[in-house]
């Protein structure tokens, strides 16, 4: 089974601050890291490879330094990586980003299953996965909590949809977005880091893609106009309940199960 995981390099601290005057992100000192939500997607892909064989490729779009997170994926056990990078891709919104990624995927060989994370910790739109699938013309499903079975032409998955948990069989090739906390991602191996060859990371520029029309990429290909960037309001809402220990335990249990924490 050939799997491709889409990943992204994000700021090193999940607590990204926004300069309220300029609207620019204040980059934390800690540099960059692999989007934490993508770790669950990589783990799910590597488990499938262990079960069914095949390969796991990773792909990202970003500046040249995004290569770092691809190397990290290789140290976790992925086989090959693609970095889509070109100045022409800068300033892309969700539509242009997903289109660029879909073009990159077309250059990554035959893929049966594409796995994305739930969202990123910087953009937070949770839309790129689904839009990429639309560009590729393949089925997609979000909030996937488990991959139960894979056969010749389909994959059976479990997904957490607002009010219910659904089991769904999807025809391959397809794209799924893994929910967070659904597995424990493996750690990158220092041994693999020492032995991984740099040539396993392939760069793709505009010139390498099928559609080379620059109007479809970057700022030019982005219909979204950002008016203002501001930090979200922090919610400190709390629920206070009174009652005996038993009543409180009951209420807490109901609250946690209603919200599907337990």
């Amino acid at each position: 089974m050939n799997i491709l995981v889409c990943v992204k390099q994000v700021p090193g601290s999940s607590n990204v601050k926004v300069d309220e005057k300029t609207g620019l992100l204040i980059r934390p000192k800690k540099g960059n890291k692999l989007n934490p939500y993508d770790l669950y997607a990589i783990e799910a892909a590597l488990v499938l490879k262990e079960q069914y064989g095949g390969s796991v490729k990773v792909l990202t779009m970003g500046p040249p330094q995004a290569r770092d997170v691809l190397e990290e994926c290789l140290w976790m056990g992925c086989d090959e990586a693609y970095l889509i990078t070109d100045r022409a891709f800068g300033g892309a919104d969700v539509l242009a980003t997903s289109y660029t990624i879909s073009q990159g995927i077309r250059k990554a060989g035959d893929i049966d299953l594409i796995i994305c994370g739930k969202q990123t910790t910087d953009g937070d739109t949770a839309q790129v996965g689904a839009e990429t699938a639309e560009h590729l013309g393949i089925p997609h499903l979000s909030n996937v909590t488990g991959i139960l079975e894979v056969d010749e032409g389909s994959v059976l998955v479990e997904a957490n949809q607002e009010k219910m948990i659904v089991k769904q069989r999807i025809k391959l090739p397809c794209l799924i977005c893994m929910d967070s906390e659904v597995n424990t991602p493996r750690l990158p191996s220092y041994r693999r880091r020492k032995t991984t060859e740099e040539t396993l990371v392939h760069s793709l520029t505009l010139a390498d893609l099928e559609d080379r029309n620059p109007e479809h990429y970057g700022l030019k290909g982005s219909p979204t106009q950002v008016q203002k960037v501001f930090p979200p309001e922090k919610s400190s809402s709390r629920i206070l309940e009174n009652g005996s220990s038993e009543e409180l335990a009951d209420k807490l249990n109901r609250l946690l199960s209603d919200r599907k924490f337990i």
């Binding site: 692999l34 934490p36 991602p185 750690l187 220092y190 880091r193």
Partner: peptide
């Protein structure tokens, strides 16, 4: 056998 790297908040928390 190997050496696993724990270099982010998330990885650190999991271990």
């Amino acid at each position: 056998i190997d050496v696993f790297m724990i270099d982010t908040e998330e990885r650190s928390a999991s271990v």
